[in-house]
């Protein structure tokens, strides 16, 4: 099993519903977030292009945050999801320094926190909070190894890219272009 997410940059309108849904679902403290919106404007008038991306932890295959963690608090669970065990985390910040996507933050209670691909919802057979609320249905989530999953189907028919592949982390967020 290999969980992954595809984000349709052509369909995303940057409303930020995924951000709020995540904050609500996961009790993210005020002023912090586990996912966010990037608005990438390129070109010069009149040939301007805009790309909207809903970003979060890439749950990398080669995850530097897990390798750097001195206590093993950062670990990988089934499906390739990168998680942090709160009461094993010492708050040293090594994983924050090693993440090319800046997807981790220091929770006010001290430990490091990040996107979990809503594994508590997956266990119940539901999808992630951000996927469920997206009003344009531009987020596709599922198992990459299952050819019939939403994410596999989305990737089959479209051109896609990943962010900062040169960082060598094998990220698992695919942006449909």
């Amino acid at each position: 099993m290999r969980y992954a997410m595809a984000i349709d940059t052509k369909k995303c309108v940057g409303c930020g519903d995924c951000v709020v849904a995540c904050q609500t679902e996961n009790n993210v403290p005020h002023g912090y977030c586990r996912d966010w919106i990037v608005e990438n404007v390129a070109g010069s008038y009149p040939n301007v292009e805009i790309e909207l991306r809903s970003e979060r932890c890439n749950h990398c295959d080669n995850s530097p945050c897990v390798r750097c963690c001195p206590t093993g608090a950062s670990h990988i669970i089934e499906g390739g999801i990168v998680k942090v065990t709160h009461n094993e985390c010492i708050g040293c910040g090594a994983c924050i320094q090693s993440c090319p996507y800046d997807a981790r933050y220091s929770h006010p209670e001290g430990y490091v926190d990040k996107c979990t691909f809503c594994d508590h919802r997956l266990a119940k057979g539901q999808s992630t909070a951000c996927v469920e609320v997206c009003p344009t249905s531009c987020l596709y989530f599922g198992d990459l190894e299952d050819p019939n999953s939403d994410v596999s189907k989305a990737l089959k028919n479209r051109a896609w890219k990943v962010l900062a592949p040169e960082a060598g982390t094998k990220p698992q967020l695919y942006f449909l272009t």
């Binding site: 930020g16 966010w36 919106i37 404007v41 390129a42 924050i96």
Partner: peptide, 23 residues
């Protein structure tokens, strides 16, 4: 080509605008 980035829905102390968690 000019490229401009806006990051919204995100304002994490000590990470945005740039990482500054080690003092």
């Amino acid at each position: 080509m000019k490229e401009e980035l806006f990051v919204s829905g995100r304002n994490i102390p000590n990470i945005d605008p740039y990482l500054n968690i080690w003092h």
